[in-house]
Amino acid sequence: MSRPQCSRCLRPATHCLCPLIPSLESRTRVLLLQHPSEVNHALNTARLAALGLNNAQLVVGEVFDDLATLLNPPGYQARLLFPSDDAQPLQRYAPDEQPMLLVVPDGTWRKARKLLHLNPLLAALPRVTLMGDAVSRYRLRKAPGPGALSTVEAIAQALQVLEAPASFEPLLRPFDALIERQIAAMGAAVFEKNHG
């Protein structure tokens, strides 16, 4: 018998994160393309980001038949948030600059690359990247390298840069709570032994 689940945040009802999820406005539109293997992941930070941003959309799949439509909402310039040699560092919007459709693949690095491989329109988008080597707040995982962030952290940082001085820190509240709950559940001694 399974535990009752919140239909919105998909957490067990006893650990619902909805009271911590903000309702943030952004000039930037965020399109999250989530690999199906991430849907039932314990953290599912793409879902947290989509729930916390009023101008965001989460689409699950490997091949997106309606990708041309998704990538061309009127009034936005589509950019793929994904590292590459030719990726442009994100910068604050100029006053009259057209806002961005920030396309964010969600999955392991391997699965995200697969999404690009299976969707040529996605792979063909101009790429943008975050500057610097931000440190992830995901203290339960070893990052594969400097600047490796969870999906919600990457989105919050990207919006922070693009729309400064607006703050997108509230987007990370449910993520931080989730991490704290997992640490509490494993106990301080186990956390220190494995992640300290």
Rank of each mutant, 00 (worst) to 15 (best):
V63C: 14
V63Q: 06
R8I: 08
V30L: 03
S7C: 08
P95Q: 09
S84I: 09
L31D: 03
P4C: 07
M186W: 00
L172K: 13
S150D: 02
L71A: 02
P95L: 09
E38L: 01
C6L: 02
Q91A: 15
K114Y: 06
V60N: 15
P120K: 05
T129E: 13
L80D: 11
A49P: 07
T108F: 10
P36C: 11
W109A: 12
R173Q: 15
A134P: 06
P74M: 05
M1H: 13
P144D: 15
G52L: 03
P144R: 14
R110S: 15
A164G: 02
Q157P: 00
R137K: 14
T151L: 01
P89F: 04
L101D: 07
C18L: 10
H117R: 13
L159I: 04
V39M: 10
A156L: 05
Y76R: 09
A166H: 11
A87G: 08
L24V: 07
P89V: 08
A124L: 07
L178W: 07
A184K: 13
L101Y: 01
I179F: 08
R47V: 03
R127Q: 14
S37K: 11
G132W: 05
E163I: 11
A158E: 02
M186H: 06
A164S: 14
V190Q: 14
S37L: 13
V103T: 01
A185G: 01
D86E: 15
T108R: 14
A156M: 03
L178I: 03
R181T: 02
A154G: 12
L10N: 08
E163G: 10
A46Y: 08
L118I: 00
H41G: 13
A87S: 11
A78I: 07
H195D: 10
N119A: 10
P126L: 01
Q34D: 10
N44H: 12
L31A: 06
R139W: 04
R47M: 10
T69K: 09
L90Y: 05
A50W: 05
V63L: 07
A148K: 08
L48A: 05
R27V: 09
V152Q: 01
L121G: 08
R92C: 09
P170I: 02
L33P: 02
G145K: 09
L178A: 14
G61P: 07
Q98G: 11
Q34H: 02
E62G: 11
R139N: 11
R79P: 02
E25F: 12
F191N: 05
K142I: 13
S136Q: 04
L67H: 13
Y138K: 07
P174L: 04
T28R: 04
P73S: 10
A112E: 05
H195Y: 14
K142F: 01
P36K: 00
Q34T: 12
L43H: 11
P144E: 15
V59E: 10
A13L: 15
L118H: 14
P99W: 00
D66T: 02
T45D: 06
L118G: 11
P19S: 08
P174F: 11
A166L: 13
R173N: 08
Q77K: 06
L53T: 01
R8M: 03
V190N: 12
V161L: 13
L81P: 07
T14E: 15
V135I: 15
G107M: 03
G147M: 08
N44R: 12
D176G: 09
A78R: 04
H15M: 05
